[in-house]
Design a protein around this nucleic acid. Structure first.
Length: 222
DNA sequence: AACTCGGGGCA
DNA sequence: TGCCCAGAGTT
């Protein structure tokens, strides 16, 4: 298992590789952030950004999402995939915001998780980015990177990964941890083809050592 | 734990 | 073409 010092080194290196990783989300508007993160499930941020640009010109407040028909909202977000469920969830979510929370986005993680389409990952992103509440959002990239680097154990559940990260990463870096690991996992430490041979973390990466050793044996055998 | 949603991106 | 994807909900 990696020490705190080693983890800090890893995060620093990830920050050097993707220096703009923390600038991708809109900090200033919790409602737009919530919608954007709900839309981002199972598709890339680049794709969501294409949609949200025009979407946020048309829909400013929760009320605006309820003024149109479900079909119209579905068409407005069609290009991101999973759009039927997401449109339904967003209309339901907006209705709840209006009825129970005076049209405002709750700043509590557990409250957010009760909204349709909002799971633990989405709730953690919203509270940490929009409200500055310490939280670490764990998605498939964060989970994979944490396991490959032996920050946590292979068999750990998503929740256990989150707890381990909170224990080992200094609190003031929690928010940035999510974005650095996301970019690192998406573009470098890929699920199928990680770039271990050109990775600055190889010397302390359990999975990387195993994989590169495998590559050497493979090459030697040919 | 396994399945579903889904169009776009990429090899 | 076929495979995978910044998840969440249901069974």
């Amino acid at each position: 298992m990696l020490t705190k010092k080693e983890i800090r080194f890893c995060l620093d290196e990830m920050g050097k590789m993707f220096p703009k990783a923390h600038c991708e989300l809109n900090h200033s508007n919790p409602f737009e952030l919530l919608i954007a993160v709900v839309l981002s499930a199972q598709c890339t941020d680049a794709l969501v950004n294409k949609v949200t640009k025009s979407l946020f010109e048309k829909y400013k407040r929760p009320e605006d999402y309820l003024k149109v028909s479900l079909d119209e909202l579905q068409q407005d977000i069609r290009s991101i995939g999973l759009y039927r469920n997401k449109a339904k969830n967003i209309q339901k979510l907006c209705q709840i915001l209006i009825e129970k929370y005076d049209g405002q986005v709750p700043c509590d993680r557990d409250t957010l998780m009760q909204l349709p389409g909002v799971g633990r990952k989405t709730a953690n992103v919203v509270v940490s980015v929009a409200f500055g509440i310490p939280a670490i959002a764990v998605d498939t990239h964060v989970e994979r990177v944490s396991k490959r680097l032996a920050i946590c154990r292979w068999k750990d559940s998503v929740l256990e990964v989150e707890k381990t990260l909170m224990k080992k990463v200094p609190m003031d870096e929690w928010s940035i941890t999510h974005h650095r690991m996301i970019f690192f996992g998406r573009y470098h430490c890929k699920a199928q083809s990680p770039k271990c041979l050109e990775c600055p973390l190889l010397s302390l990466c359990r999975e990387g050592k195993k994989r590169t050793k495998g590559l050497e044996l493979e090459n030697a055998g040919k």
